[in-house]
Nucleic acid binder design. Structure first.
Length: 265
DNA sequence: ATGGTTGGGGGCCAA
């Protein structure tokens, strides 16, 4: 095993973003790609393109039009499975076991709509219920675990461009950030990105498509996360937020998050 | 306070 580079990336359609995934692979060579919002049915996933890039192992859970997650790997993947959060059948989670018995969980947490009130907005209620289910699930975990993906929550004040303004904006409201912290604490996960880019340094992984100039206004949020269970925390070697990918042609609104681990022999 | 853009799938919805 030794060194393993893992990438988490909400690609906002894997078919639309294939050239950018190929560029990332050429330039950064991750061993494992964890994608979210692939927006394609499992059977229509462009497997051949990933095999051509050297990813021979796959765990894919797609869905027509919406959501969808996939793990593509140069290392063997075993016992892949998905949990049906909130019983809706949504393709928002896939997990697989890596060599060495590490379980890797790839999440696409609901965005939650616009209105931050669960009584008025069913999407926000769904997001909170989804996080509540994750908290209960995490309490029962024991194995070495990596949880990553688009959590759609920016937990810290320095994870958004304007903390006070975003306290009432879905993704940074107290009910969400408190839940995310309870989830993290439930398995004592280590936030790999914040272990390297420590607070209060602002770090973002998402910039809206709607900005005239995303780089100039820099109104970003850190919605994408990579968490390591305590036994894996010492394996952390490095992190890169591939911010430049937001400026590539026809970009996703999220950028890749790379985490390097030294898993020893 | 509002609108701004993108992708999928078909003639708007979700993000």
């Amino acid at each position: 095993m030794a060194f393993v580079r893992i990438c988490s990336w909400n690609v906002n359609s894997v078919r639309a973003r294939l050239p950018l995934v190929e560029r990332l692979v050429a330039e950064r060579a991750p061993d494992i790609l964890c994608l979210q919002e692939i927006k394609v049915e499992t059977d229509a996933f462009p497997r051949a393109a990933f095999r051509a890039m050297g990813y021979e192992h796959e765990a894919i859970f797609g869905q027509r039009g919406h959501h969808g997650v996939a793990i593509l790997s140069r290392l063997a993947l075993n016992k892949s499975e998905s949990i049906d959060w909130c019983g809706l059948g949504d393709a928002r989670h896939i997990s697989a076991e890596l060599p060495g018995g590490i379980r890797l969980h790839d999440f696409y947490v609901p965005a939650g709509g616009d209105v931050p009130d669960p009584d008025l907005n069913p999407r926000f209620a769904h997001k909170l219920a989804f996080l509540d289910e994750m908290i209960e699930w995490a309490k029962g975990l024991s194995e070495p675990t990596i949880a990553l993906g688009d959590f759609n929550v920016a937990p810290l004040a320095c994870d958004v461009w304007n903390h006070k303004a975003l306290l009432s904006v879905v993704s940074h409201t107290p009910v969400e950030t408190e839940r995310l912290e309870r989830l993290r604490a439930a398995h004592e996960w280590h936030d790999a990105v914040r272990a390297v880019f420590t607070a209060p340094q602002p770090i973002f992984t998402w910039w809206s498509y709607r900005a005239r100039d995303w780089r100039a206004s820099n109104r970003g949020r850190r919605l994408d996360h990579v968490w390591l269970s305590p036994d894996l925390a010492p394996a952390l070697v490095g992190v890169e937020i591939v911010e430049e990918a937001r400026g590539w042609e026809r970009p996703s609104d999220h950028v890749p998050v790379l985490v390097d681990l030294d898993l020893g022999s």
